[in-house]
Amino acid sequence: MSLLEIENLRVTFETETGPVQAVRGVSFGLGRERLGIVGESGSGKTITGRSVLRLIRPPGRIEADRMVFDGIDLTTASEKQMRALRGPRLAMVMQDPKYSLNPVMRVGAQLMEGLLRRDRLGRAEARKKAIAALEAVQIRDPERVMEAWPHELSGGMGQRVMIAMMLIPEPDLLIADEPTSALDVTVQAEVMAILDNLVRERGMGLIFISHDLRLVAQFCDRVLVMYHGRIVEELAAGDLMNARHPYTQGLLNCLPKIGGSREPLPGLDRTGDWANV
């Protein structure tokens, strides 16, 4: 049975200079699997992810023919229902950890907040769980990080803290928006392994948003390629390197390769018919 079903999702922003259509008719379904969304920046990946949690603020507007999460209709759910879903069942790791952590609260307090309030755990137990979560995302010195302020963390550290925070309530669906783009390759691999584990062990659904095609190919089951607010191609991750759509092919070709030639890298050719959708 599928965890999330979306049909014809559209998101429009009313700006001073006229309406901007950020997402223009996106449909997909998701089981308890790893779904990747790739595309250039501005293609609407983040907005698609946020729409699932209905986290689009005015002047943005969400419209969809159907948006169902585990039998719950997200288009008609009340704001109260949504609040109850966000966190325990639907979680999202935001793109920029700097703006997603509360700057005037220690990291530990933020991690424990949900455990103390929602799950009504004791302080000692909440602390133990929070530290375990930090260890799960490969933070070397969890005790110190618990006492740190968000501004004292590096970008990579902040992103891992965000992931830990989202995973504490064991959500059914995690939307990870570029969770590793501030990390270097070695740490990236570690974080991906953690997410991978969670999907397998807990049967969590994962939407993994990234602009790194190679990472998505290596790590996801299925991939959606977005361009200009639309899905232009959907394929099994294993086939991504042999994609047929000219946009996907173009994106793959512009990557430099170790041992490749020193010729100028091919740019993305935007003159094809596909570019004017």
């Binding site: 250039e40 512009c254 990557l255 890298l265």
Partner: peptide, 11 residues
């Protein structure tokens, strides 16, 4: 930067 833009900037 994105892959396509990275290629442009590196070139």
């Amino acid at each position: 930067l994105d892959a396509s833009v990275q290629a442009e900037v590196l070139n």
